[in-house]
Design a protein around this nucleic acid. Structure first.
Lengths: 214, 214, 214, 214
DNA sequence: AATGAATGAGACTTCATTCAT
DNA sequence: CATGAATGAAGTCTCATTCAT
């Protein structure tokens, strides 16, 4: 009996997670009601509350979805081999193309994760930091690999900035297209990705600025 | 009598605007109730509805606050003279320091303006675009001034990207500090601003990438 | 000074009465707000409350308007000479045509008066009854004049019914045209008025029914 | 379980309908608040909104109540056999007595149905017209049955007027008794009904008026 | 006194959460 | 345990009435 029950429980949870994912493509989490979620999952409201204590308990799920998608992506179409011979610039361009593809498809999850990592850091905090840390390590490796091209003195700082930029630069356009700050851009996606990549590259290959007094 | 009446009317509106400003520092506009706003302004709910037709009518106020603050800032502590002799890099560093100071203080308004330029473009749209356009023109001038240092072929594209980056790069950290993507950063504010500036500089002085096939 | 003040007071009241009249053509009294009334009268809300204790105090005004219009009508285009030689049927047709003309123009006042004589009989009661009584006396005179044609035994009862019918039959159509019960009718106005008149006539010339047991 | 659930659901709706019916005896629908309705039904406000999308959704219920009552009445105490041998006058008197009994008990529903067939024809319109049409058909049959007694040339017009009168004449008194136009009447109910019936009869047996010039 | 801004009760509606069945 | 009906707090908005200026 127990395994069956567990399986059923798992199935129920999965349905809810899928329903949530579906809804987040359309609207913000705050605008999704429990009843709506229950219906989309083919469940009763009561069943939802059996799996999740309250609505906030779905917030970690958003992040979980994000991570799952990211892992699946990285293991699949996002898998890239950095060719050391291609040089740093080419490597960054490749990385940006991949990142853009992910954001273009799953940006709504990134957006929601961002929002709730702020609104409810108590509910997401740790996992979010773990992911960022992993991203930073990848950045570290990249900088290591092309150490001779990188002109930044402080390698650790460069890796942090690389991560920050990678998670920051494309988001605005990926999520909101022609609304918001991305409205200034007249580039198409490929041009935009290239520009982003050059920005990252430019940062890394620009030697430190001589100390100034301002 | 008239002036007194008008003064009272104006005073009420100002109180509400101040109350809104206050609340936006704490929470999202969607989470501010009219009753809350009224109380913060020392008014009754009815008084709110005498000044503003409905809750949505506050949305343009958010943007208005943003612009007011920006104008006041630019006319005051944000006023900077670009020294042509200092070179592009110094100019960008200066610009970033100024921008950072503004965002650090008024970023919550920028955030809210961003959000509602998406959610309700009908209510903010035009003015937002006008501001972005103005920013792009400033970028144009800067690139003009240091035309010999800039290596980007397409000047227009460079100005657009410059604007996008300026409005995008610092926001995440300014608004959310250690939550979200900015959590990777171990830099202090000055270092962060310098890194941002170098990123912008790096983009502009990196020559176009030779055409590739992917 | 006093006369001036009184005159001003009177003028204010008249403006409000006119404004109310105007509004009642468009919508029900319950849907007219005091602010709306004040604006239409070119007055301030406070000024309204100087003349009228509260909104209910306008209800008698509705009736007053009705009476004024009726009196003006009867003294003007509604003035009819009953020609004794024409016979009862012609007289009733004439009377109905006149009544119809009034209702067609001022029915909205009649409707409102009806409604509030029910909703707030304490506010209208007496005057309403006085008017009905006057109408009944006119009916009495008509029946007197054509006493030989009228077949109803109880002259008083006939006069009451005549009044009731006159105030009841045309209203529905006059006020609501093709909505409500009048929707069955495919007649034009002239035909309708003629049918109404024949109904009244038919009642008066039908001899009393012999007593029955049901 | 399902039947129980449905039964509860049904029971709730019934309670609300009963509560509405109760309230309509006291006051106009516009003056009944949802909270009031909920309390009268022994429910919470939220429960009301589970059954009815909004307040307007009760409007069709008013009409539905009217029809239910009418059908129940016609199947019960309102059931009458018209005796062809009794003649037209007796038939009309019988019909009026029946109609009066119904209106005396359920007139408030008829009134409300009338009002909302005007105010919100979109919500009631069709069914209302269907009922009126049915009434007109009944009138047609009656006129057919006593075709030799009826003196009106245009049979269709007569049926329309019969319907209009039947729906119009008794309402005022049934609903408002001594307020409004019915205040002139000093008759008791039986006398009033007889007078109404004679009015209808008189209309039908009065030959068409010879053409006149106004 | 006149003005119209302010008040605040109350209406409609939503939805997270509870609980009878 | 599952269901989905019921709860009720909270939010938006209206408007008759009051009251500071």
């Amino acid at each position: 009996m127990r395994p069956t029950r567990q399986a059923r429980s798992r199935e129920t949870r999965d349905r809810l997670v899928r329903a949530l994912d579906q809804k987040l493509r359309e609207k913000a989490f705050a605008d999704v009601s429990i009843a709506e979620l229950a219906e989309a999952a083919g469940l009763s409201v009561g069943a939802v509350y059996r799996r999740f204590e309250n609505k906030d308990a779905f917030i970690p799920v958003i992040f979980e979805l994000y991570r799952e998608r990211l892992e699946a992506f990285m293991a699949g179409e996002g898998r890239v081999e950095i060719e050391p011979d291609g040089g740093l610039r080419a490597a960054i361009h490749t990385a940006c193309r991949v990142a853009w593809r992910f954001l273009d498809q799953h940006g709504y999850l990134v957006r929601a994760s961002h929002i709730y990592s702020r609104l409810r850091p108590d509910l997401i905090g740790d996992e979010w930091e773990a992911m960022l840390d992993q991203a930073r390590q990848s950045a570290d490796q990249l900088l290591e690999l092309f150490g001779d091209e990188v002109k930044r003195q402080d390698r650790a700082e460069a890796a942090q900035m690389f991560t920050y930029l990678m998670n920051t630069l494309p988001i605005e356009r990926a999520l909101y297209r022609d609304e918001g700050a991305a409205a200034v851009l007249e580039l198409d996606d490929d041009q935009f990705v290239a520009a982003i990549a050059d920005t990252l590259y430019g940062y890394l290959v620009t030697p430190d600025r001589p100390a100034t007094d301002g």
